[in-house]
Design a protein around this nucleic acid. Structure first.
Lengths: 155, 155
DNA sequence: GATGAAACAATAATAGC
DNA sequence: GCTATTATTGTTTCATC
């Protein structure tokens, strides 16, 4: 991976686009105090390098019909690479899954899910996790709230 | 909250913009098979209603200089609303913090952080979490991998 | 609700400084 | 890196269906 140090302008571009990915290049340039051609070239470079890895809309999960969120900790029975990879792919393909963390520690995965109601959660826990051969045990915690940090660009 | 049922077109708009928030309206319309004016009106409506809650660039944390990620479980000493809210606000304001989950169960918060190296993690754990009065104990798990699910629009 | 056309605005590529 | 120019592409409005 080609690593280089990002300067202040780069970091500001990242921060602005983290907070609003639909900023126009013109507006972005104005906020940075640089010419639009400069902002565009910087942004394209960050995309090329993979530093800007994607742009995603944030959807209100409740409005979408899945108001109940949970974190499911999953411990696998054995640690063999095909099992670990298969589990992760399986989890990511479920429509209820929002994100998947592969962790060290007591459990192997932490799966963030959004469901319609408690019965949907129960069914998901049993069918998508407990029933799988590679899963030793799961532990489910409900989510009261989930917030992303706001980027400042001044670290 | 004004709740209504989203139709297929709405759900497709959400899915497309979740996967690529910078899709032009023209391209979005072409993928849905509707006129650009239609796609625009639908998207604006979803924004007005809060279903589309924001647009965020995804930044490669390693490329940004913070290649080490962790999940910090935080248990608070007592559960009083001002304490809980103060802790959450504190966590969200830290530059190392990516996202914060407020959960039920053994711990109260799960904090996703990205740091430069193990020493930075140790320092963050001590100074930003352990040292705080309202914190009873923390447990830190390293992250091997973190993936967001891809939206399909066909649930 | 959805449409197509027209007016307006932004982007991308290029050249010169 | 900036400015300026230009061709291309995208956005937004609105009368109409």
């Amino acid at each position: 991976m080609p690593q280089r140090d990002l300067d202040r302008t780069d970091r500001q571009i990242l921060a602005h686009l983290q907070n609003n990915a639909r900023l126009s290049n013109k507006e972005l340039a104005a906020r940075l105090g640089v010419a639009p051609s400069t902002a565009l070239e910087r942004t394209r470079r960050l995309e090329r390098e993979g530093v800007l890895a994607g742009y995603h809309a944030e959807v209100d999960l409740a409005a979408r019909g899945t108001p109940l969120q949970a974190l499911v900790s999953v411990s696998l029975r054995r640690h063999q690479r095909p099992l670990v990879e298969a589990f992760q792919a399986h989890a990511l393909a479920l429509p209820e899954v929002v994100q998947v963390f592969h962790t060290t520690g007591q459990s192997d995965f932490l799966v963030h899910v959004a469901v319609r109601n408690p019965e949907h959660l129960r069914q998901l826990a049993l069918e998508a996790f407990t029933d799988r051969d590679e899963v030793a045990r799961i532990e489910t915690a409900l989510l009261f709230d989930h917030r992303r940090a706001v980027a400042s660009g001044e670290d």
